[in-house]
């Protein structure tokens, strides 16, 4: 952790400057996280009268709970689906836009703005489009013989939330891919062209490898997004259903804590999620450090 080569001297000033941030962090972040850790080893009886220390029992129960294991599996499907779909489309659009000369800015503008749309709103929009009775897409699917109903079919519901989540994330990925493409030195591409590589070959052998740091960065960011920032999409649309089909981990923490009032289990789930986030963050910062060193 560097500072500047020379620094100001001051005994109390730096602490005063840090105080607001540190106080808020302690009250609203560190303390609750500690509480989660603490509650994760306790269990309350159903009347909330007696609290007993149960050690890792909450975690053991979770690991044996078919509902929790199902939620993990659904989260995996959801995260992978969202990440792959939104990154693939974003890369495709970015490559195409990068080929453009005059229309580059116009296309960019049109593709960038969904970043501003809240996940919950994205969910409501696609929920409306896929509405089994009046939605346009079920109507079209019906014509090819598919009976779409995300209220009955878990698969349909999962596809719906994946599309909504991926749709919102395309613009973020697009911005980064386009920035990455624009930083590929033109001379490399020209050198490859002189070496006789075709357009497709130039992309896969020169451009794509050079994009790999950005791709990796986006991979982590998208997984984090799909796992934690998509709460609104689920909550505003499927509410985890039908039959737990879209009950991803962050939604389950909320449900078990606020609706089921099972604090011990919810706290244990929080601890597991925090561990996952910390692991992902460490991976991400390893990557940032490496990049800074280049």
């Amino acid at each position: 952790m560097q500072t500047k080569r020379t620094t100001f001297s001051g005994y109390w000033l730096p602490y005063a400057l840090l105080a607001p941030q540190v106080i808020i962090t302690l009250i609203f972040f560190i303390w609750p996280a500690g509480q989660a850790l603490y509650q994760s080893v306790l269990r309350q009886d159903i009347f909330g009268l007696r609290v007993t220390f149960v050690g890792l029992d909450n975690f053991r129960r979770l690991m044996e709970d078919p509902l929790y294991l199902n939620s993990m599996q659904m989260t995996l499907v959801f995260a992978v689906g969202t990440t792959v779909l939104s990154m693939a489309l974003a890369l495709l659009f970015a490559v195409m836009v990068n080929n453009m000369i005059r229309s580059r800015d116009s296309y960019s503008t049109l593709l960038v703005w969904p970043y501003a749309v809240a996940p919950a709103i994205a969910g409501v929009l696609w929920w409306f489009i896929f509405n089994p009775s009046i939605g346009i897409l079920p109507y079209m699917l019906d014509m090819v013989g598919y009976d779409w109903n995300h209220r009955r079919s878990g698969t349909d519901a999962m596809i719906l939330v994946i599309i909504a989540a991926a749709w919102k994330q395309i613009s973020y990925n697009f911005i980064f891919f386009l920035a990455g493409l624009q930083s590929v030195p033109q001379s490399l591409i020209e050198a490859a062209a002189i070496d006789g590589a075709s357009r497709a070959k130039r992309f896969w052998t020169i451009v794509f490898p050079l994009l790999s740091p950005i791709t990796f960065f986006l991979l982590v960011v998208n997984i984090v997004y799909a796992m934690f920032d998509t709460f609104g999409i689920i909550h505003a649309t499927t509410e985890g259903g039908p039959a737990q089909a879209t009950n991803i981990l962050v939604y389950k923490v909320y449900r078990d804590g606020f609706v089921g009032l099972n604090l011990g289990s919810s706290a244990a789930q929080s601890v597991i999620l925090m561990t996952i986030v910390i692991a992902l963050t460490v991976i991400q910062f390893r990557y940032i450090e490496r990049r800074v060193n280049y």
């Binding site: 609203f28 509650q39 709460f231 606020f258 706290a267 929080s270 999620l273 925090m274 986030v277 963050t281």
Partner: peptide
């Protein structure tokens, strides 16, 4: 940074 509000929602 590592603790989004969603994961420690109940204690917060």
């Amino acid at each position: 940074l590592m603790l989004p509000v969603e994961v420690r929602i109940v204690p917060t």
